[in-house]
């Protein structure tokens, strides 16, 4: 009896949950559907079944050179992530394994740099970038993205590294491991999952960053955020093309995001929720 009731309850909850989930997902779903329509189809009213044409995808590349922007997004997000890891891993490492009484203060200070509103430093950065010839350059924007995500990288790595038990190090030392051997054979294998998670989240954040990318680039170094934003002043009908460009812009990161749900929580709450 109780079993039957709970089965019925599961069915009801399942239906409600699916309806809610589909409503939330709908704008993305409809964008993907519209990307497979022709422009005239896209504006003929609500229609969930596209003709399956690929002309919008072809048009996006042909008219605007989509691939260049995509490549910029890849270079900027990968480049800034790798540099941030290169700088951040040693720092997080030393704070996790050789903490001093100032470690907590340094961590909190790093967190505080994330609190500074980007717009407050827009003017100085804009002027400095202009004077250094870094406006609309990949180098300039890579450095910017590296620096704005560095605190998150260090924090996330720190919460991962801290979970590596110190006893293992002592055991290795007892067995006569050198400092170098300790790092290469004992710590690195245990740290790789944390570093990979951090990398994943950071690529997502850098890919979607939409303040500095919009303000510091125009064409040469422009990633997909700038490219899509240029659709905001339309000339003619472009629903299907916008959808195709949007689908291409979000697809890779959407898939990466699905794999990084847990890391997202940890990374964006600075370890406050696990």
């Amino acid at each position: 009896m109780a079993r039957a009731v709970s089965k019925k309850k599961v069915a009801v909850v399942t239906v409600i949950a699916w309806i809610v989930a589909l409503i939330i997902f709908f704008p993305i779903l409809y964008t993907i559907i519209t990307s497979f329509k022709s422009e005239s189809e896209a504006i003929t009213g609500f229609n969930l079944i596209p003709s399956g044409t690929l002309e919008s995808y072809a048009a996006v590349e042909a008219q605007s050179g989509y691939f260049k922007f995509f490549l910029n997004s890849v270079v900027l997000s990968l480049g800034s992530t790798l540099i941030a890891l290169l700088i951040g891993v040693p720092a997080a490492w030393s704070m996790a394994f050789a903490p001093s009484n100032r470690t907590k203060d340094i961590l909190m200070w790093m967190l505080s740099t994330k609190m500074m509103p980007a717009v407050a430093v827009l003017v100085p950065f804009y002027l400095m970038f202009r004077d250094l010839g870094l406006l609309d350059s990949r180098v300039g924007l890579t450095v910017m993205l590296t620096m704005i995500n560095l605190p998150i990288v260090i924090w996330m790595l720190y919460t991962y590294f801290r979970e590596i038990p110190g006893e293992i190090l002592e055991a290795a030392r007892m067995d006569g491991a050198t400092l170098w051997g300790e790092v290469v054979y004992v710590l690195t294998p245990m740290a790789v999952p944390g570093i990979a998670s951090t990398m994943l989240l950071n690529i997502i954040l850098a890919w979607n960053e939409a303040f500095w990318t919009l303000r510091l680039t125009t064409t040469n170094a422009a990633p997909l955020t700038t490219f899509i934003a240029s659709f905001s002043s339309p000339q003619g009908l472009f629903w299907a093309k916008l959808s195709a460009a949007s689908t291409l812009a979000i697809a890779p990161i959407l898939i990466m995001g699905w794999f990084s749900q847990k890391q997202l929580v940890r990374g964006l709450t600075f370890g406050a929720v696990k």
Binding site: A21, I28, S246, Q261
Partner: peptide, 18 residues
């Protein structure tokens, strides 16, 4: 779960224009 969390990974310009 995947459907519900997806909007978070959509870059702001895409979300706004869609």
């Amino acid at each position: 779960r995947i459907l519900v969390i997806s909007p978070f990974f959509v870059m702001p310009p895409v979300a706004a224009l869609v």
